[in-house]
Design a protein around this nucleic acid. Sequence first.
DNA 1: GACGCCGTTGACTGACCAGTCAATCGCGTT
DNA 2: AACGCGATTGACTGGTCAGTCAACGGCGTC
Lengths: 202, 202
Amino acid sequence: MATARSAAAAAEKRRVILDAAVRVFARQGFHTCRVSDIADEAGVAYGLVYHYFRSKDEVLDTLFLERWNVMLDAIRETDAQPIPAREKLHAIASFIVESYRHDPELMKVIIVEVTRAANSFGQTHLAKIREAYELIAEIVRKAQQAGEFRPDVTPDFAAMAFYGAIEQVLTGWIFDVLPGGEEDLEQAKRFVVETICGGLDQ
Amino acid sequence: MATARSAAAAAEKRRVILDAAVRVFARQGFHTCRVSDIADEAGVAYGLVYHYFRSKDEVLDTLFLERWNVMLDAIRETDAQPIPAREKLHAIASFIVESYRHDPELMKVIIVEVTRAANSFGQTHLAKIREAYELIAEIVRKAQQAGEFRPDVTPDFAAMAFYGAIEQVLTGWIFDVLPGGEEDLEQAKRFVVETICGGLDQ
DNA sequence: GACGCCGTTGACTGACCAGTCAATCGCGTT
DNA sequence: AACGCGATTGACTGGTCAGTCAACGGCGTC
């Protein structure tokens, strides 16, 4: 059977190109790099990138959607648990921090080239990005109804503050503005929830 | 005296080009627009842009630095006041929100094309951007020493969370993810400080 | 009213690069 | 071992645009 073997081989080659693209995008940035850089990094010919992807954009789209959908699922799953809202937020912060620990280059690409690039790719994927905000807002809304969270801050606003705080910290690590050692990652999970839920006040 | 009159006229023409650039960058994005778009918007010939600016980049650099330095001064001035840290943070949040109210297009350009574009212009201006984080961190540090803020969250982290929360809300307004009416802007000043200082917990 | 300076013009050039495509390769099939 | 087909190659094309520059115009000066 050639079909099964070659289908697996094709998927593998596609992965090789995607992984190379992560490294190139992280190093040079999406707009600055050339498609030939991705091909070189992957050790394949220029044209092969276009055999597996319709365009340079589609490579980045694929990387983003793959990972973002995993995150959305993780948030939904967390929200389904019968635990306090504070713990839900901690689980979400943990998931994002762990994503960074596991593959910092991929997270750099997603944040820098998509999430924070709202004029180019962010625009295309705005609906997907918004889904994350809305899931978090929903957690806050339910916590307010249950009396866990104060009712005067709107859920949409709280969601933006929570997500914005996490993303800013990741951005700090990515660009060496904040120390990003192992202990710092662990600490950040607690700090972000402590700050947003508990507040800085003594 | 021709020199004085023409110097004023030159400064005015330069301003016309800068203001046109804000509109074009906000509408089309820095990378997507052409220098000829700026010239057309300003009602001047293509080449004149290069009479007043060395490059397309320098136009954006100028817009960013002009505004960012005003903000840094405002933060320094706020910090010099003999008021509680919570009020200092409120004043900073107010300043940023008012900047958005006064010129949303300019704020969009600064946030989208510089502050959140850490791979391109953000890199160039990283030191300037960092200054803002450090000034905020300093406010937090002093508040911790004075016993106003809890001592267990590091000042650098708190600064990132505070700034990240504000920027995320602005980004929400810019891309119509959050309602950005007059009352919403007013509310946001309170909410961001309430959330970061007071916490979401009931 | 002739001269010169400098703000202004816009056609042009050189470089860059995404995407195409015809040619080649190599593996499985018969 | 000859055939076929999808994977692979990389030279080439077409279009885009930042930045240059030679020429022009209008205002002040003498």
